[in-house]
């Protein structure tokens, strides 16, 4: 005979489990049913020949190719901005920092991680307004600014990922290295970093996934609905998540709606595959060190 608390917990468990499965299932089926039929060459390139679009010879007017390329450039630039400070800070925290530095930097990383993405976008906006008043009278919101703000947004996850990957390595590596007379620098750069490489790559993929899906930051720092391929670092650009957001609010024709569903499916595929890569790397790291810990 069950007490009331157990009964409640049992109902809660099954209720929420089924609800979550149902919600995700509905979401996927709905997206596939509406986006699946339009998913294809037409969706990306419209009637432009794919080769011309890929080489940038002819513009694509009625497809999501410019948005895909915009997201691609955005991610590359974000990676360029974030990779060095993020990984560097993770290595510093895991291998060099004194307890006091650990506490302070850890606090900074936590605070940075808590900042909502819209506030990060607002920061970019205020920054460019300030720059316009001082040194860059022609400055405007652009690809460069967006990727800088996105880099700030994903830095904490990169730091935490790198730090965790290094700290979960078996302790005997550094002990053995010390016994063999390796200097501290040699231990870190020749042994620990290569050993944790896969974990760090996994963290990088997760950070990229976060950057790919974020809409609030780019909304305030330079994304537009119709820009074509980005022509340079200081130009406006299109991006997949904004395309989806914009479609939901302002679609006028059935074709635009279809494009929206197609874009949603494409973005889901992109972030799903980034997540899969991250898993792959992290599983690899675990498998490599599981037997010897």
């Amino acid at each position: 005979m069950m007490k009331r608390r157990e009964k409640f917990l049992l109902c809660l468990s099954w209720g929420s489990g089924l609800l979550i499965c149902g919600a995700v299932g509905t979401l996927l089926v709905f997206l596939l049913a509406r986006g699946g039929p339009v998913f294809g060459k037409e969706l990306f390139f419209d009637s432009t020949p794919p080769m011309d679009a890929l080489l940038g010879l002819k513009p694509v007017w009625n497809g999501i190719w410019p948005a895909v390329m915009g997201t691609f450039f955005l991610l590359s630039l974000t990676l360029a901005f974030a990779a060095l400070p993020g990984i560097g800070c993770g290595v510093f925290l895991a291998c060099y920092a004194t307890p006091k530095q650990k506490y302070r930097l850890g606090l900074a990383v936590d605070l940075l991680a808590g900042i909502p993405s819209i506030v990060m976008g607002l920061f970019g906006f205020v920054l460019i307004v300030y720059l316009r008043r001082t040194v860059l009278p022609n400055g405007t919101t652009c690809l460069l600014l967006s990727s800088f703000c996105l880099a700030l947004l994903v830095l904490p996850s990169l730091v935490v990922g790198t730090r965790t990957a290094l700290e979960t390595l078996p302790r005997y590596i550094s002990l053995t290295a010390a016994a063999l007379g390796f200097s501290h620098g040699q231990t870190v750069w020749r042994l620990l970093l290569p050993a944790a490489g896969q974990g760090i790559l996994g963290g990088l993929m997760l950070a990229l996934g976060r950057a790919a899906e974020d809409t609030a930051v780019i909304m305030l720092t330079g994304v537009v609905a119709n820009a074509g391929l980005p022509s340079g670092l200081t130009s406006k650009f299109e991006a997949l998540p904004f395309r989806i957001y914009y479609t939901a609010a302002q679609y006028a024709t059935q074709r635009e709606l279809d494009l929206g569903f197609g874009a949603a499916l494409a973005l889901l595929l992109l972030s799903g595959s980034l997540l899969l890569c991250a898993w792959g790397f992290q599983r690899g790291l675990e498998r490599r060190w599981r037997g010897v810990r």
Binding site: L27, T215, G260, F261, L267, S271
Partner: peptide, 15 residues
């Protein structure tokens, strides 16, 4: 649950 961490917020909103 793990897969859900990869679903972009904007896709939730759109659906």
């Amino acid at each position: 649950l793990r897969f859900m961490t990869a679903i972009p917020t904007v896709v939730y909103g759109f659906a």
